[in-house]
């Protein structure tokens, strides 16, 4: 896997071989995450390997989106710290973080009457100043981001006229225009049909492989997770149950433990990555219906 290093943060390429050993470092230690008084996770430790495509999986309400929000500093942990390149993320200036770490939230609202190009252009916000609002550089990055996501032809179209798949690619283009070495995506494939899901995931894989970006995504589909991730984090009840390469993590035992779903794990005939096949319902159970 060759990687062109576009956005490496200097001082961290320490020369150790292997694809997870450089790039920006994002980690959380002893995190307690809560909404008001409802505690979602306690004493959670997590590390996002540099230059990985990390995928977080887990059942509904296990805290995976909450963890992603904490890592993206949109949710302030009740306890513990999120470290970006070794420094407490809350102590860093908001704009500086926004030039290192981008977030595509699950739900975002496109303003009424905004064009694709304008929406993607808003990703340039952290790079702009009061007096230097739009530069040739911004222009180029916006164009490249739209080309990379295949929405350049839609540049002048209104966002609210687009299909769900097109819209999702526009949002990803906006996140790309932010030009951050780290990109966090919260369920980027939800609400998309299977073809669009694969399209979005292929795009993510390309960003990771060709542009050397570190990606962190929350995904629901285990087979997609196993196929695309270089690093997998499995969560249940606010705890990290397992973390590592998909081939090692994604076992029948783990899926049963995390999802309470009996299954078999076979090799994906297409890629050789783990493929989760849920067990058929028992005959007696279906007979009672």
């Amino acid at each position: 896997m060759t990687q062109t290093i576009e956005h490496g943060i200097s001082g961290h390429g320490n020369g150790v071989a292997g694809m997870h050993d450089d790039g920006p470092r994002l980690s959380g230690s002893a995190l307690t995450l809560s909404y008001d008084k409802r505690v979602v996770a306690e004493n959670l430790d997590v590390t996002i390997p540099g230059r990985s495509f990390t995928v977080i999986i887990g059942p509904n309400a296990c805290g995976k989106s909450t963890l992603l929000r904490a890592l993206a500093r949109t949710l302030r942990p009740a306890a513990g710290t999120v470290l970006l390149d070794g420094r407490d993320i809350t102590s860093l200036p908001a704009r500086k973080v926004a030039r290192t770490l981008g977030l595509l939230p699950q739900t975002s609202v496109a303003p009424d009457g905004i064009t694709v190009a304008e929406l993607v252009g808003r990703g340039r916000y952290p790079h702009q100043r009061l007096l230097r609002q739009w530069s040739a550089d911004d222009e180029r990055v916006v164009r490249e981001s739209m080309e990379a996501t295949g929405v350049a032809d839609l540049a002048g179209r209104m966002v609210d006229e687009l299909s769900g798949g097109q819209r999702q690619r526009v949002w990803i283009a906006m996140a790309l225009a932010q030009e951050t070495p780290l990109l966090l995506l919260d369920e980027p494939t939800t609400y998309l049909d299977i073809a669009h899901q694969i399209e979005v995931l292929d795009l993510c894989a390309r960003l990771h492989e060709e542009r050397g970006r570190t990606l962190v995504a929350v995904l629901h589909d285990l087979n997609h997770a196993a196929r695309y991730a270089t690093h997998l984090i499995a969560m249940r009840d606010g705890r990290v149950v397992a973390a590592g390469a998909p081939g090692e993590v994604m076992t029948a035992d783990l899926v049963e433990e995390v999802f309470r779903l009996p299954c078999r794990v076979i090799d994906d005939p297409e890629t050789g990555t783990p493929l989760v096949v849920p067990a058929a319902r028992r005959r007696t159970e279906s007979a009672t219906r």
Partner: peptide
């Protein structure tokens, strides 16, 4: 206007 999380992500 595009959402709190997105705005924070962009450094607002």
């Amino acid at each position: 206007e595009m959402g709190d999380d997105l705005a924070r992500g962009l450094g607002v």
